[in-house]
Amino acid sequence: MLSRRLQRGAAAAITAIAAAVLIFFIGLPLLSIFLRVPLSTLVHQLHSQVARDALAVSLKTSLTSLAFIVVVGTPVAHLIATKRFPGRNVLATFLELPLVLPPVVAGIALFAAFGRLGLLGHQLYALHIHIPFTWVAVVMAQSFVSMPFYVRQATAGFASVDRQLVGASRTLGAGPARSFFRIETPLSSRSLSAGATLAWARALGEFGATALFAGSLPGITQTLPLAVYAEFSALNFNATLAMSALLVAVSFAILLVVRIAFNWRVA
């Protein structure tokens, strides 16, 4: 039998090894993007039209997706968290489905619904609405795959608010809307911001569904991940690395800013 001290030592060693493996496994590839080519080459590559267009498209579409997700996802999350109704579990499960679907399937699903030959294709065509291969298609693809990240977190956040506090708010003369904005939202702000950050990060990195449903038209639908792949296919290795570095830097900045803003604990 191991002595207590030995057990503690072993536990510490295992933790240290695990941490080292993880840092090596995640840190090294990310770092090599920056180290593979000289910094001057990276900066030079970023001035290219393709890179600037891709960054602009990425920011525009991912922020639009985020806004859409928050506006639509918040009331639904609140409903699931606070009300008991038939079909509640089915609804919650449906909204989580994009989490487990491969993004390519998401793209095909969007095509099957809104494409020219899709379920609503005729009606949309009659109204002269053409969605595939537009920036709206990018937003739809990103929202489709990112929505669950926000809805899940927001639902957990609203569910954790003591219903008695909402009751107290109501007896103090606040209607449902005021109770929502003054009590429920501030008390679940951590979950809401965490969910929004995750959803935004997921939207920014979206590739498969976008490629299928929106294509890769430079300046219109070509987001940073799609531009990276396009450059990679064209064997422009330096440009690929430069844009990958850009994506890493932007993602890191987003996560860091949000983390500091909400004073998250590392735990």
Binding site: Q164, L165, G167, A168, T171, I183, P186, L187
Partner: peptide, 30 residues
């Protein structure tokens, strides 16, 4: 009548004070 239109004051078990507001803000809420 909805609770907000009843003018019924309720003191909840253990207070149910709003944890993110100061005492003064809690009192001012109503």
């Amino acid at each position: 009548l909805p609770p907000e239109d009843r003018a019924v004051g309720m003191m909840f078990q253990e207070g149910a004070l709003f944890p993110h507001m100061s005492v003064a803000k809690n009192v001012a809420y109503g």
